[in-house]
Design a binder for these strands. Structure first.
Length: 270
DNA sequence: GGAATTTGACCGGG
DNA sequence: CCCGGTCAAATTCC
């Protein structure tokens, strides 16, 4: 481990990051197996949820700091090893320009980390969707979220979620989740799962967006059918942690995300 | 009626 | 000029 960290080649951190991400994916599998068999109303279930939450929080932080180290290292090497011209300042600009241009557009926030997960909505933060795009020839659209407290607290954190093109294994849906900008919002201001639970009783959250997106049926050559299934469980407004696992609807929704439910149209690209 | 989402427009970098 | 990130009007949801 230390050897890897100390190594000066570009792949050093990446290896560790990959391992942690793998660990994360395994934890997610475990999570998906365990949650359904728990009695949602038992205190035990809450405790287990909490433990999962903490584990994910930890690995998230590890990945985050490793990515930062990785970026720093890459920049180092980039500045040492010359390349063509002033062109590679571009990367530096992205890192520093947060104030340079006073205006909004374009990645003003630097990339923090990327995670591959089965549960892109479970990361302990609340997000609000602000966009969705079909990316080049990707099979799935990418959704854009910003911190739910971006307005009240000016939190610059954003994230993108895009389903990975499956690498043959058809049983698991993986999502690429990219995080940009550091959270500056007050964590105390964030409602915790258990509070939320008490606050509003169970609703069929997972189905609330279906109707509105049903207009999005297109028989183009671009697997747009995907979109209809994505809307089945891509619940932009849902709290991004496990919280609602205590209610049956939510547990079912997550089941859909992780298992290949027959209710979900097959990926026509598979 | 307010809040959140959807979706096409817009913008800017490469 | 294309691509992808963001805006914002329209729409939906509660």
């Amino acid at each position: 481990m230390m050897n890897i960290l100390e190594s000066s080649n570009l792949g050093g951190y990446k290896e560790v990051i990959n391992e942690v991400e793998h660990q994360r994916a395994l934890m997610m599998d475990l999570h998906d197996l365990v949650l359904p068999i728990l009695d949602p109303y038992s205190g035990q279930a809450k405790l287990i949820q909490q433990l999962f939450e903490e584990v994910f929080s930890c690995s998230g932080k590890i990945i985050s700091s490793l990515e930062l180290g990785d970026n720093r290292e890459k920049q180092d090497i980039l500045t040492k090893c010359k390349t063509k011209g002033g062109e590679n300042n571009v990367e530096n600009h992205i890192f520093e320009e947060n104030k340079g241009r006073g205006n909004k557009r374009r990645k003003n926030a630097k990339h923090i980390s990327s995670v591959v997960t089965q549960a892109p909505y479970f990361d302990g933060y609340q997000w609000r969707k602000y966009g969705q795009k079909w990316i080049s020839k990707a099979k799935h659209s990418r959704s854009y979220y910003r911190c739910a407290y971006s307005k009240e607290q000016g939190c610059p954190a954003t994230k993108t979620v895009q389903q990975k093109e499956s690498d043959g294994n058809g049983t698991v849906r993986l999502f690429n989740v990219g995080y940009y900008g550091q959270h500056i919002c007050n964590r105390d201001g964030i409602v915790h799962p258990y509070v939320v639970e008490a606050a509003h009783d169970s609703v069929a959250i997972a189905s609330q967006n279906q109707s509105s997106s049903s207009t999005f049926v297109n028989t183009d050559d671009h697997g747009i059918q995907d979109e209809s299934f994505e809307s089945l469980f891509m619940v932009p407004d849902m709290p991004e942690y496990l919280t609602e696992f205590s209610d049956v609807e939510m547990a079912r929704a997550f089941e859909i995300t992780s298992l290949n439910s027959p209710m979900i149209p097959e990926d026509i690209w598979a």
